[in-house]
Each structure stands twice: as structure tokens, then as C-alpha cells.
Design a protein around this nucleic acid. Structure first.
Lengths: 137, 137
DNA sequence: TAATAATACTTGCATAATGCAAGTAAAATG
DNA sequence: CATTTTACTTGCATTATGCAAGTATTATTA
């Protein structure tokens, strides 16, 4: 809903006309700027695709939050729902081109976190992490 | 406050013991994961230092939010308060080394936004933007 | 020197988002 | 066919957001 004061939005806008700013950083944050969204993208980059996979990550995302974030990421064209690859009728999620383009952002976040947040570590080696991100091919 | 379920935090943790995850991305998002914090860092990178400067950015950040974010960024060691450089008794803000290390993240956000959020643009040329970021020196 | 303006916040409050816990429904499994 | 698993939805208490107005200090102007 657009509020009275220019630029103030309660729901992140998609259309340019409803944007709080012409700045690409601000517009990116309207989609990505919360504690959970980029973690869902991280898990997809790491190869996880199923609702149960996201829940199993160490942060313990609440299921109503996960559901809401998956819905928003789909509406933003960053992920898509696809048939699960295990022969069942279940659905899985995948990154679109727009979503895969978030890799440099995740790498920068991870690198900053490793350097400046003591005690943090990735679950896999840096080489494996980079390999799964398609870096250094 | 640490909640009952493991990993659920209402206030972003600083100490490792209170983290929701060992993942550097998750820990970085505990500090940076909202719509306003990285915009404050953007403005500092662009050379703005004063409270009135942040307010003047196109997004129109509410003053209570700005105040709160500046306080949190200081507590996280990302920015510091310094005397204003205009000979008055007013104070200004500056990035620490930890804060300056966020440049690659801002560049990745901006580049993603420019590519995938149609109609967004930076206020200055890419060369000027990169120059002010110290990239390509 | 006093009045006015600018700056840097704080406060009150309504609304929205978050997140816990429990629940539901469909699909899968044994 | 019964049970389990998976993918959500719902209710509600708490927290965060953000508008508008206000306060206090500092700077500027007349």
C-alpha cells in the first residue's frame, strides 16, 4: 500500500511507479532486505530444493515465514516452482536466471561474514562452496 | 532476547553464543538484513556523513529509524561517530574498516539491481560510482 | 544580544510484520 | 488401510515499522 509521504511503502513495490527510490540498491533491498530471504536463496544455491530442506537449515526458519518468502520470491521472478525430481507429485523450487544472478551478492555476504563475524564458518570448504556457486570455472 | 527454540533471536546477536547459526551469511543478515541499514552504508560510501544528509536521500528514511540504525551500526563496529569537519560542534558519522569492507556487497547489490530492476539508475555515472567506492584504482 | 532557523534526535501511537505453536490436508509409505 | 511425512495455514502475542509531532541543542541572522 502506498502511503502518503513520497517513497514510503509498506509492501515492497515491484512496478517502477510504486518504487520508493530510483536507486538499484534500494529497489533490491525492497525484495531482499530482511533476515530470511537471502537465506532461502543461499539454500537454493547450495542445491536444496524442497520445503523440508529449507526447514532443516540451522537457522530454523518458521514455516509461515518460509512460505511467505517463497511466495514473494516467485512473484519477484527470482525462483520458480518445478516438479520434484523424485518421481512423486511433490513440488520443488529452483532459481531463475534472475535468482542465479544473486550469487555474487551471496559470495560477498559470506566473505564479509567470515572476515568480520568471528566464529562463523561455512559447512563446506571454500572450494566446494565456490564450486557450487560456479565461481572459478 | 533469546527465545526458547534454538536459533530464534529477536534482537540480532553479536556474540557467537547467541547466534542463530554458524553461517556467515546468516550472521551478516542479523546485522544488515532490513530495508534501511545498507542504505545508510551506501550513503556513507558516497561521502555523506551527517544526519541531515541521510534524511535528504530519495528514500525518505524516518528519523526514528535512522537514529536506531546508526546506533546499531555503531554497536556493530561498522560506523563511528566523529566530529563534523565544518568547525562546528556537530557530529558526523564515518565507516570503520569493517564498514568499508561492505563495499563489494553494495557493488553486487547495485549491479544486480541495475540488471534486474528495470528503470533503476544510479545518480552518478558508473565510473564516478566506482571511483567513490575505490574500485579500479 | 535576542530572535529565528537548522539540526539531531525522541516520543506516542496505529499499523504491519514476525514468529511460536498448533492445526489441516494431501501425498507417501509400510 | 493405517500411519507417517510433507507442505503448508491459522491464531495470537510480541516486536518492528513508520507517521507526525515534539524537544533540546547549536548555528545563524538581524
Amino acid at each position: 500500500m502506498i502511503r502518503k509521504k513520497s517513497g514510503h511503502l509498506r509492501k515492497p513495490a515491484v512496478a517502477a511507479a510504486a518504487r520508493r527510490s530510483p536507486c538499484p540498491v534500494a529497489c533490491a533491498l525492497d525484495i531482499l532486505g530482511d533476515r530470511w530471504t537471502l537465506l532461502v536463496v543461499r539454500d537454493l544455491i547450495l542445491g536444496h530444493t524442497r520445503f523440508r530442506d529449507f526447514i532443516a537449515s540451522p537457522e530454523g526458519i518458521p514455516t509461515n515465514i518460509l512460505s511467505e518468502r517463497l511466495e514473494r520470491l516467485q512473484r519477484s521472478g527470482i525462483i520458480e516452482q518445478v516438479p520434484a525430481q523424485d518421481g512423486t507429485k511433490r513440488l520443488a523450487y529452483g532459481l531463475t536466471g534472475k535468482g542465479k544472478a544473486l550469487q555474487p551478492l551471496l559470495v560477498a555476504l559470506r566473505d564479509w561474514g567470515l572476515e568480520w563475524e568471528k566464529g562463523t564458518r561455512v559447512g563446506i570448504s571454500n572450494d566446494e562452496f565456490r564450486s557450487s556457486y560456479g565461481i572459478g570455472k
